[in-house]
Simulated scan of single mutants.
Amino acid sequence: MINLRSVTHYFKFTKQQRTGIVLLFAIIIALQIVYFVVDFSIPEKTFPQEQQWLSVQSEIDSLKTVKYNAVPKIYTFNPNFISDYKGYKLGMSVQEIDRLLNFRKENKYVNSAKEFQEVTKISDSLLAVISPLFKFPDWTQNKKSFKTDRAEYVRKEYPKKEKIVLLDINEATQEDLMKIFGIGEALSFRILKQKEILGGFVSMEQMKDVWGLSPEVLFELNTHFKILTVPNFKKIAINDASLKELAQFPYFRYALAKQIVTYRSMNGNFKNIEDLAKIKDFPVDKAKIISLYLEF
C-alpha cells in the first residue's frame, strides 16, 4: 500500500507559496479571458486610389486578352523587292537571294510565282508556302489591256539629262565625297574612317552604318558611287580567330564575339553564314555583308 503520509508531504505549502499559486492561477485565467475577448486581428489597410487602380488593372488585363487572341494580319508583298533580311525570314538561302538580286540588277522583274522559282531555284515546298504572300502589279495579270493603254499614250520629249559618271566608293577621296550636297569635311572623314576600319566597302548598304548621313544624302551617294571593284582585304578566319580579333570586327563587338567563341567551342566549326546566324543577337539583316568579310 502507498504510504499516504509520504504523498501528502508534497502538497504541504507555506502561506507565501499558497498565495503565489493563487495569484498564478488568477493571472492565467485573466490572460485567457483577454485572449477570447480582445480582437488581435490587424485591420486591413485601404487606399483612396484602390478602386481606381483595380479598374485600370482590369482594363489592362482585358487588352492583354484581346492582344493574345488576335489573329495576326498577313501582308502581301511584291517579291521583286525582297531584301536580304526578308528573304532570310522567308526561309531562302543566301544563294537563292543572290540569284534574285543579280536578276534585278539587270533591270528585270519576275511577274509570277513560276518565274520567281525559275530565277531563284527555290524548292517546290518553299514556293508553296510563300507564293500565297506574293502581290504582283495589276498590269502583269492583264498585259493585253496594258499594251492597249500604252499605245494610246503620247510620248513627250524631254531634254536629256547629263549622264552621271559612277565612281568607285573604295577609290573616292575626301574631295570626291564633299562634292555631294550635304557632305562636308566631318561626314566625308567618317566615311573614309569606316572604310579604313573595314578594309573596304563591299556594299553601298554599308553607308547606312555611317552616323549622320540623312536619307537624302544616302540617295545622292548611291547615285554617284557604286562598288565597282571588290577591295583586297584580309578576311577573318571565323573558325580560328581569337576573341580579341573577333571583337575588333565592327559588326561583332565584344559581347557577340564572346558568344561566337563559346558556340564554336561547344558545337564545332562554322560551315557557312547560316550556322553563324543561329547565334543569339547576330545581326541577321547584315548577314550577306558580314559573310564577305569572313573565311569559313
Rank of each mutant, 00 (worst) to 15 (best):
D149E: 12
Y153K: 13
A186S: 15
V22Q: 06
L192Y: 03
I227E: 03
Q95M: 06
D168L: 07
L276S: 02
N222I: 07
T223P: 05
E205Y: 13
I122F: 05
A186R: 15
S131Q: 14
N232I: 11
L90N: 01
L23D: 10
L101H: 11
F25M: 14
M207R: 01
L213C: 03
A247G: 05
R104Y: 13
L63K: 13
F189N: 12
L294W: 05
L63C: 07
D138E: 08
F25C: 14
E220C: 02
L4N: 11
I2L: 12
L127Y: 13
D124P: 12
R5Y: 08
L228T: 14
S83N: 06
N269K: 07
G20H: 10
K286R: 14
Q52A: 11
A247H: 01
F270A: 01
I164H: 01
L187M: 14
V66Y: 13
Y35G: 09
R264Y: 12
A255Q: 03
L187R: 10
L221D: 04
T148D: 07
K143I: 11
I227W: 09
N80Q: 07
F146I: 03
Q57M: 12
E216W: 09
K280L: 13
Q95E: 07
W53L: 14
K108G: 06
I164C: 02
A255M: 02
D281V: 06
A26D: 00
L256T: 13
F233D: 08
L177Y: 03
I97A: 09
V66P: 00
P159D: 09
L177M: 04
K161R: 09
E44R: 10
K67N: 11
K86H: 05
L276G: 03
L166D: 03
Y85C: 01
F146E: 03
T173L: 04
D240R: 10
I82R: 01
I236G: 00
Q141L: 09
Y88A: 02
D209G: 04
M266T: 10
F136V: 13
F219E: 15
K12Q: 12
D124E: 15
F134C: 07
K73R: 13
N232S: 12
R18E: 07
Q49E: 08
Y263A: 02
I130M: 08
E295V: 07
L218Y: 04
F40I: 07
Y293I: 06
K163M: 05
Y88W: 08
F103Y: 15
Q117R: 12
I197M: 06
V129N: 14
E175Y: 09
T46P: 00
M204F: 00
Q17I: 05
D240Y: 07
D149F: 15
K195T: 05
W211A: 09
A113R: 08
P137F: 04
N3A: 06
T19R: 14
V261G: 03
K163D: 06
V34S: 12
I238F: 03
V56M: 05
Y85W: 08
L126P: 14
F47G: 05
I60Y: 02
R155Q: 09
E50H: 04
V230L: 08
S62V: 11
